[in-house]
Simulated scan of single mutants.
Amino acid sequence: MSAFQNSIGRGYVVSSTYLSIAIVLVIFIVLFISSYDAFSTVGWKIFTLEWNPSKDKFGVLSMIYGTLSVTFIALLIAMPLGVLTAIFISEILPEKFRLYFKSAIELLAGIPSIIYGLIGIAFFSGWVSSLFELATGRTILTAGILLSIMVLPTIITLSEDALHNIPKKYREVSKGLGLYPFETITKTLLPIAKNDIIGAILLALGRALGETMAVMLLIGSIDRIPDPFYNFLAPGQTITSKLGREIGESAFGSLHFSALNAIGFLLLLIVITLTIITQFYFKKEDRL
C-alpha cells in the first residue's frame, strides 16, 4: 500500500473522529439553547412533580423516576437472561447450530419498536392486568418487561461474541487442570470476557433509556410517582414517552416547547454521565 493511500486512510479516520465529536457538540448546544428559556424561567422548580403547561408548571421528577424504573426492570430481567443465553450458545450449543440461533436472536433487534408496542398491548398488557387483578395492564412493570425483550439481542449477541472469541487454549488448559465445564465458564471465561459483557450491558442500557414508542404505548403516561415508590404496578411516564406524546402538540418557541427540550437535555446529560463513568471504570480496569 502506497504512502498516498495510507495518508488517505489516516485522513478519513481522523476526519470521521472529529465529525463525530462535532455532531455530539452540535446536539448538546442545540438542546441547551432550545431549553434555555425553560431553565431560566422555571429554574430549580423543574425538579418538582407537577407538570401543567397551562399554569407554566413543568416538573420532571415523575418522568425521571419513570425512566429509571423502566430501565431498572428491563436490565434486571435482561442481564441474567442475556448472559446465560450467551453462555449456552457459545459453550454448550453444538457449533453447527450456533449461527442459526444467533441469526434468530439478531432478528429480534430488527423488529420495529412499534411492533413490540402492539404485541405488548395485545399480550403483556392483558397478562399483567389479569395476573395482578388490575384495572389496566399499562403499567411501569409492563413497559419494563417489554423493554427487557427489546434489549436482549444486544446483550446476547455481544456477550456471545466476547465469549466465543476467547482463544481455545484457555478452555484446553482449564480442562487439563481438571476443571468441570461450569468451573471453566465461571472461573476462566467469564472473568476474561467481563469487560466486553459489561460493555454489552451498557449498550443495552443506552437502548433502554432512549426507547420511545413501545414504552409510550404501555406505560400508561401518567405524570406521577407511585405511592409507595416501588409500586411498579402503577402507570407512569418516562422522558421519552412524554416527548413522544407532547412534542407535536407544543407551539414552537413556547415555554412548553422549551420545557420538553429541557427534559431531552436532561436525558442527554444522564447518558453522557453514564458514558463518562463507564470510561473511568474501563481505564481503572486496564491499569489493574
Rank of each mutant, 00 (worst) to 15 (best):
G253A: 13
D227P: 03
L75D: 07
L118I: 15
E246K: 07
L19N: 04
A86F: 07
P80Q: 11
A200F: 07
A109V: 08
E172T: 03
G11Q: 03
G248M: 11
E50R: 15
L158H: 04
L266M: 14
S54H: 05
A135Q: 14
F28W: 02
A3L: 02
I46A: 01
Y65K: 10
R138M: 03
L108K: 07
L25N: 05
E160P: 00
T278H: 07
I87P: 03
A143T: 12
I46D: 03
G210N: 13
S16T: 03
K57P: 04
A3P: 04
S221Y: 12
G11H: 01
F257Y: 05
Y230S: 04
I276Y: 13
L255N: 11
I270H: 07
V215P: 09
D56K: 13
N6M: 00
S16L: 05
I263D: 00
D196E: 07
T71L: 01
A74K: 09
G210E: 11
Q237V: 02
G206F: 09
F229S: 10
V271K: 07
P112H: 14
E246V: 09
A122C: 02
T240H: 14
F58C: 06
L203A: 12
L31C: 12
L147Q: 12
T212G: 09
I185W: 01
L99V: 09
G178W: 01
I111Q: 08
F280K: 15
N261Q: 12
F280S: 15
S34Q: 06
V30P: 01
A262W: 08
I64G: 06
G43V: 00
